[in-house]
Computed example of a mutant assay.
Amino acid sequence: MPSTSSYPQFLTNTPLHPSFDTDIRDTHLIYDYAAQNSETGEPEKWRYELWCFSPTRCVYAIHGGPMAGRSNYQTCTWQCIRPGELWQCNWLEETGTIVSLVYDIKERRVTTMIAFSRGHWEKSEEAKGDKRRKEDFERWRRLAEIGTQTERFVLCEQAEVVEVFRGRGSLEGVKEDAVTF
């Protein structure tokens, strides 16, 4: 049982599948959710970008939708569902938001369940910025203090992967021991 002295903690008893290096490591995904504008109801694309940096870190940026303008990196866990086909990535954000993402390599799809904390969802403008800036990081941490664990906006969507390549692209790298909380 892990120590309860410091949270968050991540535990998986499933060893990282060796295909991580060929399937996921250093993979960069650009994907679009088909959504609608909350004010006009018009169709729009929410573009996300994810760099599968390492077995314990992912880096992302959001370019469309209510969270556009957010750049971040997280401690994450990866699980192979089917080598060469399906991988799951899970993380907890400093805002209290929980993300579970499945990347379908063959179908070029991303399926997500994002449980936004009340603070993150209702104060989306405050959730924008870059974690590397201390003032953004501190503001994001305060968003986790708004509401209770059950006061969440849960978003379950699928996105079309429009581009896959290796490397960081325009995203900024992160050290393996970078503070995520």
Rank of each mutant, 00 (worst) to 15 (best):
L92P: 01
F116M: 08
V179A: 13
P83N: 03
Q36C: 00
Q88T: 05
E126A: 09
T14F: 10
R47V: 03
C156A: 10
P83R: 02
M113E: 12
F137H: 14
F165M: 12
Y33T: 08
F153C: 05
L92A: 10
Q158R: 10
S3G: 04
E157M: 11
M113S: 14
H17R: 06
E160N: 10
R141H: 05
L86A: 05
K175C: 12
V99I: 12
P8M: 13
Q9M: 08
G96P: 06
C89V: 15
T180M: 06
Q9C: 14
V154W: 06
K123F: 15
L29C: 05
R168G: 14
W87H: 03
W78P: 05
Q74S: 14
H17G: 06
E176P: 07
Q36K: 11
K128P: 01
E94P: 05
R70D: 01
T97W: 02
V154Q: 04
Y73D: 08
C76S: 07
E151W: 02
L155K: 02
W78K: 05
D26I: 06
M113N: 14
S71W: 13
N37T: 06
A34L: 08
A35P: 02
T111M: 09
V110K: 01
S6K: 14
T97L: 01
K106G: 02
L16A: 06
E49I: 08
E135H: 07
W51S: 02
F137I: 01
D21I: 03
E107S: 12
P18A: 00
V162C: 02
E138N: 14
L92C: 10
Q74G: 04
D21H: 11
H120Q: 14
F137P: 04
L155G: 02
L11W: 15
R152T: 12
I81G: 09
P15F: 08
E107V: 04
R168A: 15
D21N: 10
L92W: 03
T75S: 15
L11G: 02
H17S: 02
S117C: 04
E163K: 13
R70A: 07
Y60W: 10
L11F: 15
H120Y: 13
T27I: 08
I105R: 01
N37W: 08
